[in-house]
């Protein structure tokens, strides 16, 4: 039996363990520790940046979950409707491509622009739901869960999370959602800025 000398000096062990533990704890996102410390950052700066990232998302979260956004990101295959986000009437369903089914496709009633008058369907040329194979569900998600979804390329279809910024800044459906009915709680510009802030400050997952 060959004896391997495993004796390492205790202090190095302790440092090694602490380092590993710290890294491991960071990976686990344990509160109190930054997930990453960027070059030039102290631990405190990182903590602050990450707190701001979370706060930015939590602010944007209320927009994502407001009816004008969430109604087209339902948990099921029926879009939501109205400020109380009830199931859309008339039996419409997502369909494989998110554009609806048969004689009840989204664009059958929703035109290329909003129609004037109460209870008339709003509209845009690209009016639709996400497709069945990538439904991009917002409904029912906590801030943490939603943020995690946005970081998942399979959810967003974005190779990089930075593409989310351009999406919320420029996508016509997003822009349109701020222009009619009961508005989301932030103006579009504010909302886009919050999303940018979240991403640029590390896309940190909120605690809950």
């Amino acid at each position: 039996m060959k004896h391997v000398n495993l004796r390492i000096r205790p202090r190095k062990w302790i440092l090694a363990i602490l380092f590993l533990a710290g890294t491991g704890l960071s990976i686990l996102g344990i509160p109190g520790e930054p997930t990453a410390i960027r070059p030039g950052e102290t631990r405190e700066m990182a903590l602050r940046r990450e707190a701001e990232s979370k706060a930015a998302f939590e602010s944007a979260y209320h927009v994502f979950m407001s009816p004008r956004c969430m109604n087209c990101h339902p948990a099921g295959n029926v879009p939501l409707q109205g400020d109380d986000s009830h199931l859309h009437t008339q039996g419409v369903r997502r369909g494989p491509d998110g554009r609806g089914l048969y004689a009840l496709k989204c664009k059958n009633c929703h035109q290329d622009a909003n129609l004037p008058g109460e209870h008339m369907p709003p509209g845009l040329p690209t009016w639709r739901l996400p497709p069945e194979d990538r439904p991009m569900v917002f409904q029912g998600k906590s801030p943490r869960e939603l943020a995690a979804s946005f970081k998942n390329a399979r959810f967003t279809g974005f190779a990089s999370i930075h593409q989310i910024i351009e999406h919320v800044e420029k996508d016509p459906l997003v822009l349109h959602s701020f222009t009619y009915g009961t508005r989301p709680p932030l103006e579009h510009g504010e909302f886009a800025a919050k999303v940018r802030e979240w991403v640029e400050k590390g896309a940190v997952l909120p605690d809950k």
Binding site: P74, A75, G76, N77, V78, H86, L87, T89, G91, R93
Partner: peptide
């Protein structure tokens, strides 16, 4: 509940 969708699972 939402009667109009009584037979629709959401």
């Amino acid at each position: 509940g939402h009667l109009q969708d009584s037979k629709l699972m959401g």
